Amino acid sequence: MTKNEELTQHYNSHYVDLASERIGGETLACSDDFFAEMENLLKPGRGIFIDDKYTERGKWMDGWESRRSYGRDNGREYDWCVIRLGIPGVIYGLDVDTNFFRGNAPQTVSVEACVSEDQPDESTEWQTILSQSPVDAHSQNFFEISPDKTKATAWTHVRLNIFPDGGVARFRVYGEARVNWNDFVDGELIDLAAIKNGGKALLVSDMFFSDKNNLIMPGRGKDMGDGWETKRRRDPGPDWSIIKLAAKGNVQKVIIDTHHFKGNYPDHFTLEGTVSDSDDFTGGENVDWQPIIPKTKLYAHREHLFLKEIVADKAQAFTHVRLNIFPDGGVSRMRVFGHRVLDK
C-alpha cells in the first residue's frame, strides 16, 4: 500500500468528507472555470482522463480548471472556489487531488474557512486554515489540519485558492460533523445514525464490495454499489457494523433497507446497543451489547420498518449500535430513529 493509499484509508476511516456532494456539499462560486466546471471538484472517486475527448473550449478535463491568468496583468493573481459544506464541522484534513493535471496543476494552494448562515459575500471574514503550500501535479496532496481541541470551530464554508491558476481534479475536506440541535423541534424523532446528523460508521467486520459509510448516507441507495456489502462467508457469521450515534438517545423506530440487494441480502439481522465514552472498539467482543431488535428475518430489495420488534425499553439510551447480519450480504441503508437523551 502506498503512502497516499494509507492516508486515504486513514481519513476515510476516521472522518467524513464534509464537502462531498453526496451529503449536500456544493460549489457556490469561483473566479474562473473556463476549461472545466467547478462542480467536478466534489464528485465521487478520483478524476479520470479520456485521451481524445475535447470540447469547443479545449481539452475535456475531469476537475476544475481555470484559464491561464498571466498573473496581475489581467487582474487575477490567483484563482479561487467557494464551497458550502454539506455538513458543518471541525476540519482535520484536506486532500487537493490533481489527478491527470500533469502540465496544468497549480504551483501552490491555500484554504480558508468561515462560519456563515448565508452565502458568503465580500463582507465575509475568512480565516486561513492552510497557508499557501506547494502541491504536486497528478497526485493526491494531503494536508493535516490541527484545530484547537478546546474551542474547535464548526465551519460552514471553505474557499480553495490556487496559485496562480490551473486545475484540481477533486477536493476533499475531512472532518467531524457538528450539528446544531436547536434546528430540531422538541420531541422530534431524529435519525441518530444519519451521517448528516453526526452519526459515524466506526468499524465493520468486512467491506469488501462497498464502503461502510454508505449505510448511513442520505436518501435511498442508487444501485447495489451504494450500500454496505460484505464478501461471502463460509461460516454462520455474522458480519457486523458499529455505528456511533449522533447523540446519546433512545430507539423508537428502525429502518433496514435492502434496496437493490436481490440475490445477496442478509437472511436475518439483529441490532444491539451500548453506552460508551470511547470509540475504541475492536470487534466489540468485550463490549456490553444490549439487544434492541432480536434476530429477525429480512427480505430482498425492500425497506423494512421495525416498531413492535424493538425489545429495548423505550427510555433506555445508547451511544453506539451494532448491526449484525447473518451470515453476510448487503444492506443499503439503516435508520435509527429516537430522541436525544441529555445526561443529568
Score class of each variant (00 low, 15 high):
residue 3 K to W: 10
residue 4 N to V: 12
residue 6 E to Q: 13
residue 6 E to I: 09
residue 7 L to Q: 12
residue 10 H to P: 00
residue 14 H to W: 08
residue 16 V to K: 07
residue 16 V to W: 00
residue 17 D to Q: 08
residue 28 L to H: 02
residue 41 L to R: 05
residue 44 P to T: 07
residue 52 D to H: 14
residue 54 Y to V: 11
residue 56 E to A: 13
residue 60 W to E: 09
residue 60 W to K: 07
residue 61 M to Q: 09
residue 61 M to A: 11
residue 65 E to M: 03
residue 76 R to L: 15
residue 76 R to E: 15
residue 77 E to G: 12
residue 86 G to A: 07
residue 88 P to E: 08
residue 97 D to G: 01
residue 117 E to R: 13
residue 120 P to K: 02
residue 122 E to C: 11
residue 128 T to P: 05
residue 129 I to L: 08
residue 132 Q to G: 00
residue 135 V to F: 01
residue 136 D to Q: 15
residue 141 N to K: 04
residue 144 E to P: 03
residue 145 I to G: 09
residue 148 D to Q: 11
residue 156 T to Y: 09
residue 160 L to E: 04
residue 165 D to I: 04
residue 165 D to Y: 01
residue 166 G to Y: 04
residue 166 G to K: 02
residue 170 R to T: 05
residue 170 R to N: 00
residue 170 R to W: 05
residue 174 Y to R: 02
residue 182 N to K: 15
residue 183 D to G: 04
residue 187 G to K: 12
residue 188 E to Y: 06
residue 194 A to V: 01
residue 195 I to Y: 01
residue 209 F to L: 11
residue 216 I to R: 00
residue 218 P to F: 10
residue 220 R to I: 09
residue 221 G to Q: 07
residue 223 D to T: 04
residue 224 M to Y: 14
residue 231 K to P: 00
residue 233 R to T: 13
residue 235 D to V: 01
residue 237 G to V: 06
residue 238 P to Y: 05
residue 242 I to Y: 08
residue 243 I to D: 00
residue 243 I to A: 01
residue 246 A to K: 05
residue 247 A to I: 09
residue 249 G to E: 05
residue 261 F to A: 03
residue 263 G to I: 06
residue 264 N to S: 10
residue 266 P to C: 05
residue 270 T to P: 03
residue 272 E to W: 09
residue 280 D to C: 11
residue 287 V to I: 15
residue 294 P to N: 14
residue 294 P to E: 14
residue 296 T to S: 14
residue 297 K to C: 07
residue 299 Y to E: 15
residue 300 A to N: 10
residue 307 L to M: 13
residue 308 K to H: 13
residue 314 K to T: 13
residue 317 A to Q: 02
residue 328 D to R: 01
residue 328 D to W: 04
residue 328 D to K: 03
residue 328 D to G: 00
residue 329 G to P: 01
residue 332 S to A: 15
residue 338 G to C: 00
residue 338 G to H: 06
residue 340 R to Y: 02
residue 340 R to S: 01
